[in-house]
Design a protein around this nucleic acid. Sequence first.
DNA 1: TATTGTTATACTCTATAACTATA
DNA 2: TATAGTTATAGAGTATAACAATA
Lengths: 145, 145
Amino acid sequence: MGQDLDVGQVAGALQASISLFLRRVRQAQIQGDLTLPESTALARLDRGGPATSTALAKQEQISPQSMGATLSALETRGLIERRPDPEDGRHVVMSVTDAGRQVLGNRRNARTERVARALSSGFTRSELEHLMAAAPLIERLAQHI
Amino acid sequence: MGQDLDVGQVAGALQASISLFLRRVRQAQIQGDLTLPESTALARLDRGGPATSTALAKQEQISPQSMGATLSALETRGLIERRPDPEDGRHVVMSVTDAGRQVLGNRRNARTERVARALSSGFTRSELEHLMAAAPLIERLAQHI
DNA sequence: TATTGTTATACTCTATAACTATA
DNA sequence: TATAGTTATAGAGTATAACAATA
């Protein structure tokens, strides 16, 4: 306050708006659609190339067990495949299959489509730019909590 | 992106950054601290005055049952109290107790404090302003999904 | 002994369905 | 019949603990 913006106020405002947003996004989940952690892991695997579940877990900042569960779900759907690492028998390297790349190619799943539609209809171009610029700030903030 | 910013791109970036943020905020939860929905409901009840659980659920855009569970937890801790509505026996009006106001007065619980600290140490003033301005946009977006 | 990964279990947050009480 | 609230149950998304295999 005073000269500075109160960081507590910013923290509170972000928590409130962000928890509402994520709740609504989850409610927009449609049967058969990839869940949020599934799309995130699949996209990251495609972007970063084949990786082990532990490495992915570190990148997403979740426990290896949680990442394992997400990857199992993706494997069951045939979107990724597991391959043993010949150099280290403890490693299991995951990679995106053709089917997985196809799903990523469809790009906008039902959930993202709904968010995109909301953005198209109620936001000015400048507001969109503002939101786009905020995303990396939120990500950086998350990494420092 | 040519002339227009791709709304799908904005939607994807927001989902990724926001889910990471909320995950980290939840991990920062400390034993004994109010959970995120608990603080949100308590703050709203204090801000808006006594209200029924159904009314609060509508405001937070969650199911009445979920709000009921959150309110029960707050009541168990003595932070809110329930009072029957003499005019309509179906209504149960919730209000903040002195203990609840005291908790709100402490303002920054451990979770918010950690977010605030992260904001203080790694962000410029202009980035803070940017984040503060993004919060209402995110909230508006959430409401239109 | 340390690391990778799996299995088992549990907690938080939310949902839907079924019920009771009141209007 | 409609509304407010409660109870029961389930699912998503995470966590920790205990374990086996490999290094």
